[in-house]
Design a protein around this nucleic acid. Sequence first.
DNA 1: CGCGGAGTTGAACGCATTCAAGTCTTGTGG
DNA 2: CCACAAGACTTGAATGCGTTCAACTCCGCG
Lengths: 252, 252
Amino acid sequence: MRIDRAYSDIFTPRDADILHGIQAPPEIRPARSRLASAHVVLEQSYYLSQGFVGRTRMDRAGRRQFVALQIPGDYVDLPAFTMKRLDHDLESITEVTLRGTPHERLAALRGAEPELFQKLWHVSLIDAAIHRYWIYRIGRLSGRARIANFFCEMYVRLYARGLGTFDGFALPLTQTDVAEMCGITPVHANRLIAELRSEGACDFSGGRVSVGDPALMFRTGQFSWDYLYLPAAVDADLRQLLGLRPLRAASG
Amino acid sequence: MRIDRAYSDIFTPRDADILHGIQAPPEIRPARSRLASAHVVLEQSYYLSQGFVGRTRMDRAGRRQFVALQIPGDYVDLPAFTMKRLDHDLESITEVTLRGTPHERLAALRGAEPELFQKLWHVSLIDAAIHRYWIYRIGRLSGRARIANFFCEMYVRLYARGLGTFDGFALPLTQTDVAEMCGITPVHANRLIAELRSEGACDFSGGRVSVGDPALMFRTGQFSWDYLYLPAAVDADLRQLLGLRPLRAASG
DNA sequence: CGCGGAGTTGAACGCATTCAAGTCTTGTGG
DNA sequence: CCACAAGACTTGAATGCGTTCAACTCCGCG
């Protein structure tokens, strides 16, 4: 599925029109290709309208750690707007459709559309919140919980974009990718995924996560989605799914 | 030492005056106190002029994971400006001196000082880069490398603020704090710190890291500081210290 | 003097890694 | 349609890094 209007709770239709208007025509890149490299000066940032992109960092032995996973509707390298260079690599995981936005046009928004400009900052702050949660996930959770927790994050993020149902969602990664996101080895990831499968929490195969028991998956992963700053409607859906009582106050 | 003008490479003296002008009078808070809690609405953000502050997240068993460590001269919760609520807790580690800035005054900068406003975004993007590096550290490095790598980060960040020399720096943490930042147990952190000590790389005791052999510490930690976006002068100092040849081009 | 927190050390356990050998799947060319 | 290769997934067994539990030392402070 293609996403041309994302962050619907953050950006108004008018915002989306403006952003769309300063984007270059879509570019298609093949799966598993390097989109940008660390330390190279970038002139534009990309909006990801289709496909998945990984942000990775290599250790000295050449082993890869994913530091983020971008899904359709994400800006994949907004940091480059003020940083000019990235500190990590960008790699397409699937075939991707990108829409570039030259940094000079983003800069022009600063004066012309200050509120929209601030929303872009907001979007990058959500990215940072996700980073922090990844630190927590890798630092504190056991292997099995990490995998389940990661699937929970994808479940919620994709659902919020209309890219999944309560039954499951497409996640076009290999088990090795998952391992490199969770800070474990591929072999061990394989065994843990098999455990989740046999326990009935969820199944990951053929590039798809099928969620047999959402509540069990969330419990196993010790997941909470506060850090995703979801629209209230999505939050309410999730609470209902998991049998939690709705929040009294309107959420922010 | 007190830092009233930080980010000297990002903020001009005029910027610093403006920021200082919209700050409330300094507040002093005791060590080991809760400065802000997750999910509570905040009306202002804090500039940390003295002391250390940790950003933490608890797991379900009540065990703590640090997701960031703020040093003198940092803004500790700029995300709250557009988020309104934090997804983690803020805790003072030492006695701290804070200067609050009401969010309405930050918002006023958007129109009045758009360039300065963008620099605040930039600062939060550096925070995000540090988050990503923590993911890498915890996800890919062995215990010993994590500890050394963490000390390297503090070495460089504090040096860049004028809060350390090539011989060492004050780091008022307990071994348990270090463990909770690196995703290992306090007992194991103790053993690894002892190893680094006996190898001569660095010593951590009495709230101070003494660096016997910077090159060895950097090697053990597999550290690189690209993600800190340092001023060129600091980068040059570090390269000289480690016997690397200087960069040809001016860095960004 | 005694308390409490931080640091240190020992020993047993177990989760995760590593190396290795398989199977299954998919795409390609004969 | 089959043969084959390449990559993904699976499984077994040995190893080891890090955890856990426990006891003890050291130090600052009331």
